[in-house]
Every structure is written in structure tokens, then in C-alpha cells.
Amino acid sequence: MIELAGLTKRYGEKVAVDRLTFTVRPGIVTGFLGPNGAGKSTTMRMLLGLDHPTAGDVRIDGLHYDQLKDPMTYIGALLDAKAMHGGRSAFNHLLCLAQSNGIPRARVHEVLDTVGLTAVAGKKAKGFSLGMGQRLGIAGALLGDPQILMFDEPVNGLDPEGIHWIRNLMKGLAAQGRTVFVSSHLMSEMALTADHLVVIGQGRLLADTSMADFIRANSRSYVRLRSPQQERLRDVLHEAGITVVEAGNGTLEVDGVGADRLGELAAGAGLVLHELSPQQASLEEAFMQLTAESVEYHAHSDPASSPPGAGPGAPSGGVSGPAPGWGEQWNQQQARKNEGA
């Protein structure tokens, strides 16, 4: 169990982590999500006592990190795969960590075996590929057989096989009843591993919810309609009290009404439909919508003046459309703001 209470980190004027309060629970994988620079790594470093919080508190099983006796037996962390001396062999790297926490030497062989590095145990770490370095870092995290595990962007730079391995490892650890806290800037990655989500943007907590609830609350679902008798269809729907949005290319979009009801209405009026398809915005889109709000909230004193997702530039590509990049999303926000000015 990891508990954060009002955790804050300020570098001069810049607020990197802003009053974060949430709890990471055992038995599930908790995803820690946010765009680059959102404050994920800073939060994790404060958790390990590496950085001193400006204000607030973070506790592990009710204690501050430096109050833990042999901390590696409580919490294992992978912060940065390259946080090791390249001139030291994999075995000696793990051995010095084990000794500092009173962990028996035999355990070093065990974790090397778990991560599949036994064959290169005597090799210097500087010759390791990124994936091998990541595995060695994970071996270090597992060394004390801790109940809490924390990984910062563990799949970064890994090949598909390595990514698959890490996903299964994290799920397996959670299934054993351990607390697994993993950060990522990729929603799609989290969707595959995390049961619970903590989303931050610009250091502030944006969501603390189960994965299923997050998807339900944040992804926009709507029905897309195409008809050669578009004008009549609009009138029919309008008479039924349904709001229709023109989405260009001769398609109409309807929020909050089921496809079955729309189909029945069209049939009742004897109209031909070329398309009647329920759409769900992608997770990536939902995540970006959420973090974009935080960007807008900070730039605008009055967020209500332009609700996100309602402007002409709002993403409406649905599941099949490629998710726009961060910069693109930000540019859209800027464009919308300029229009409003």
C-alpha cells in the first residue's frame, strides 16, 4: 500500500507535482499515466526518498521510506535501467544491493534466473542492450521479494517480446496479491495491463479510477448515420427531439441515443440508410481529452467558455482514425482558443 497525501514538489516557480493525493492498493496493477513531463518520475523519486517533497507526505505501509528497515524487502523499484555502474558485472551489481539489505546471495541467482540473465551474469553491464539493462533493473526490484513493486516506464525502448514479458510479469505479480505501480505515457499500454488508473497532468491529479470506469466516463460514444435522404432524416430526428451534428462528408452524428432507436425512427419514416454505426472514441483519445483539459484549464481562467471536444477541431475520427499526437492536440487547443478570442 502506497499513500500520497498532498504531495507537492516545486522547483523555484515551477510546480512539478501539485498536491497529489491517492492510494495505490495491493492485488492489482495500478497504472500511473500522464504525458511526458507530467511529474510521474518526480513523484516516484519522492516515494523512494530520493527527492525531498516541498510539501505533503508519502508513506509506504504507513511509514516514510527512510523508516523502512531493509527497504528493498518492502518495495522494489525500477526507475531507470541505466542507474547502475557499467563496469560492474550483473551478478556483482545485484550482490552489492542484496548485501546492503541483508538478502542472501542465493537470491541473486534466483532473480537472475527469473529475468533470464543467468548466462550473462558475469558480463559487465555496459555491454548490455537496453532490454537486458531493463531486465537487470527488474531483477534488482525483485531481489527483496517485496510486496510492493514500482516500475517507471518499463516498456520504453523494448522489443515486442520484451514488452510482452514485462506485461505478463506485472500481471503475475499483482495476481500474487502484490501492489504493482507502473507509470507510462501510453494509454494503449496501460489498457492492456492496468486494472486501476491514476492520471496526472502538469503535476495535478486528473483521475483516480478503475480502468473500466475511466473508459466509460471519458470516451465519447455516439452513432454515425449516412443517408441519401439526409435532409428528411434530420427533420425526422429533430421531430423526435434528437440533436444531430453534421460531421462533414455527408455523415451525421448523434450523441446519447442508441443505434436501434435511430434505425427504427428511420424505418418508420421509410428512409434509406447507408450507414448506421455505433462509434466509440479510442482510449488514447479519451486520455488526451482528459489531459488536454488540464492544459486548457491552466491556460484559461474560464474553462467553461469552450468545452473540450466540442470545437470544430475536436477529434471525431472514431476507433479507426489515427490518434493525433500530443503536439497536434495542443495545436488544436491553441487554434480553438484563438477562435474564441
Binding site: L48, G49, L50, M72, D80, H85
Partner: peptide, 11 residues
């Protein structure tokens, strides 16, 4: 960068 690993092991 070993310092972060070292201080995590010995806070």
C-alpha cells in the same frame, strides 16, 4: 546514475 539505486537500497 548508480546513486539513485544505491540510495533506494540505503536511504
Amino acid at each position: 546514475g548508480m546513486i539513485r539505486t544505491s540510495l533506494s537500497a540505503v536511504p
